[in-house]
Write a protein that binds this DNA or RNA. Sequence first.
RNA 1: GUGGGUGUAGUUCAAUGGUAGAGCACCGGAUUGUGAUUCCGGGCGUUGUGGGUUCGAGUCCCAUUACCCACCCCA
Length: 422
Amino acid sequence: MPLYTAVKGMNDILPPVSLRWSRMEEDLRLLAARLNYQEIRTPVVESLELFQRGLGETSDVVQKEMYVFEDKNGNKLALKPEGTAGVVRAFIEHSIGIEKPGPHKLFYIGPNFRYEKPQKGRYRQFHQFGLEIFGDPTPEMDAELIYAASLILDHFKVKGEIRVNSIGCPACRPAYRETLVNYFRPKAEELCGDCRRRIDINPLRLIDCKADSPRTRWNDIPVITDHLCPQCASDFDRLKKALEIFHVPFVVDPFIVRGLDYYVKTAFEITADTGGTQNAIAGGGRYDNLVAETGGDATPATGFAIGLERLLSVVPQDFYGAQPLAMGFALYDGGIPALLHLTKHLSHHPVRYMAEYTPRKFKNALQKANKLGARHIFIFGEDEVKNAQVLYKDLATGDQQLFGQHETMTIVSMLMEKEIEK
RNA sequence: GUGGGUGUAGUUCAAUGGUAGAGCACCGGAUUGUGAUUCCGGGCGUUGUGGGUUCGAGUCCCAUUACCCACCCCA
């Protein structure tokens, strides 16, 4: 046991996996830019109250999963457990919605923290990429957002299932909740202990119970989509029509629930086979009342977040191929100056390269390159130095040839070409 | 917060209650400049930690801790 280990639920990301991470983040930024979302970076720490008000006092996240602490001034702060609250706070604080007409499209990427018991796909520090749109109330914009999510899945060659729902609004949800409670109360004795408690606390969750799913036992469970107010019902209709025009494959799942209180109307989730039971790789929906509840002018908004650990777990293993490595060796001290020159020249070009400045025997150089998985090697021995040349060898094919030491550009283009043909 | 599983070398794993081992990896070498290979040499590790049972514990018992998985919850 080492003296110090990483904090529970917080992971080091090491090579070569770290390369997959940075490539994935790079791709997400490019995709966001292409769809005209601009990055917003908010602090990792916010006032505790922001989250309590925004996410809902009764949500699990607020009740038991936040990292809460006081600073030396006695301010109650929290590590952000999700991305939206901070973005909303910044949106209001900097009058983003007032300076220009909407819609305002923003994206964020970064760490979040929840004090949960770690398991596959669930960590105490986890990372999310999210899109948020402020100032547009239409279900068509929700559809566009979901379309963006589907483009992201496509980009990463991820097979996910997009599940959409409308969870109603303050006008119709309470009534549905009541209906649901009335439906289950007489059946309480047939439910598991957890579910009996959930009847009053969170009847929507009850339906998803994994112990013995009520969904498979009763087929007449009331669904919210039958209990929407006229406005919500028509919006949900428009959402589905728009998704069809976008050719986004989706299923309606009337039992999708959001864990955070701020969602209204459109709610959606993307699930995929992550190898564990934490199979939701993205989730989001509309949150029309959050800006006003946070103290801003009433501003309709919609957004979603992708869990990056989960996304990466379903990105095909070969999606990011390793860039071939080139190595340089000297066979004796006299080869080192030329080797240094090669290092200097190659560092101006996008080839993955490293040198070793301890002279090695020819055979050892090949062995070492082989062990490190290098494909290209450059060798400076007595003969080469004498003739101002460098020996190049392709370990994959066994081919080798001599280059003049000053033919840097020839060498670089040769390396680049080989990379392309792969 | 609740369950279950697992902790032995850098790593993957062995070891009927009787001296802690192997593969891989790593380092060096096998007549002078050509790589999977082969051969030789190189590891005393508080068996996660603390107690207990026993003549004797990696092995059995208790506690504790870490990791993994699941519930819960969610991205």
